[in-house]
Design a protein around this nucleic acid. Structure first.
Length: 319
DNA sequence: TGCGGTACATGCGTTTACGT
DNA sequence: ACGTAAACGCATGTACCGCA
């Protein structure tokens, strides 16, 4: 352990560089960067149509600008989170933005009300593939950006056409979001002093491969935690058991290739730990064995956890 | 006028107990 | 062992009130 004023890394290889912003921000600085922060309103004054009216069909440039100015900070946060994660369930939106209400029930109710309003404004739209009936059911809505939401984030350019994702892709997006939420929960609980989370594609790392080819390392999340006077940096990979072990091993080799470029070490002082979040202990053993048998990736580069093991690992630190 | 909060209703999926 | 129905859990809806 080192004195606080030195901000020294926990390991010799760990970095000293501070992130762009810490998560004293409600959720994620990356999220807020998506929006033009020139608007200051904190309350929504845009008149919402009746539920029967449905989403607005045509929104002109002026109307778009007015809509943007009318959004509260929390509205922007919801929209940006859904943009960053691509898909979020109502429950996840609740966990991100409506966690500080008087009761969980009130938070849930408020979340549904806000999501409904943003849907009516065309900013969000729920996926059609929803388990349950028209009125209620056993699964949350899954939300994605609506056409107006896409235009808003792309500074008025044409809306991106959305389509139903494959169940596998959707499950992965939602699992990554769950991981993000669990990491923020460790900060809210006080177990970690500060958590900075970077999502795709901000956390991607373009690099030049061993043969000079252009490659991109694509972690699911990049994380910096601050504990006492130490900074720990982590790449997070979320696996749902849908990929072959060979595919995971190739990804591990890619981390090793990226590590050998030295880019991360020169910019931040050390290479982050790579954490594989895997669904079963059996799969952890298989991947760990495969890495141990392989000659390419350094085994000490990786940690393996079950879904409920990530937060304890982050709290313990990378040492 | 919009938001926050509460109470209660609704309807679907899942679980469990029971009869065959 | 299997099929069925009731009980339960859950997410969401409506309605209403108070507050800023």
């Amino acid at each position: 352990m080192s004195p606080d004023n030195e901000q020294q890394p926990r390991q010799p290889e760990l970095p000293v560089a501070l992130p762009v912003a810490w998560s004293s921000d409600p959720v994620n600085p990356q999220v807020n960067r998506l929006f033009d922060s020139s608007t200051e309103t904190n309350r929504t004054s845009f008149s919402t149509p009746s539920p029967a009216a449905g989403p607005r069909r045509q929104v002109g440039r002026r109307q778009l600008h007015r809509l943007q100015a009318s959004l509260s900070d929390r509205d922007r946060e919801v929209i940006n989170l859904i943009a960053v994660h691509r898909y979020l369930t109502t429950r996840q939106v609740e966990a991100f933005c409506f966690h500080d209400h008087a009761s969980p029930v009130s938070g849930a109710r408020s979340a549904r009300r806000v999501l409904r309003r943003l849907q009516e404004q065309g900013l969000l739209k729920p996926l059609e593939r929803r388990v349950g009936g028209i009125r209620a059911g056993s699964a949350s809505y899954v939300w994605q950006l609506g056409s107006v939401g896409h235009r808003l984030l792309r500074a008025g350019s044409n809306a991106k056409r959305t389509h139903e994702p494959s169940p596998r892709f959707l499950a992965h997006c939602l699992a990554v979001a769950d991981t993000h939420i669990s990491l923020l929960a460790t900060e809210r609980s006080g177990d970690v002093r500060s958590v900075f989370v970077e999502c795709e594609p901000e956390c991607w790392r373009p690099f030049t491969g061993p043969s000079g080819e252009r490659r991109v390392l694509q972690p699911d999340l990049f994380l910096i935690t601050k504990q006492d006077s130490y900074l720990d940096r982590w790449f997070i990979e979320v696996d749902l058991g849908t990929e072959s072990i060979n595919t995971l091993l190739r990804k591990c080799a890619q981390y090793e290739d990226y590590r050998r470029t030295g880019v991360e070490q020169s910019s931040a002082g050390a290479f982050p730990l790579v954490v594989w979040q895997l669904p079963t202990q059996e799969r952890i053993s298989r991947l760990a064995d495969a890495i141990a048998r392989s000659t390419t990736p350094l085994p000490e580069l990786f940690r393996f956890v079950l879904p409920d093991g990530l937060a304890p690992l982050v709290i313990r630190g990378a040492a």
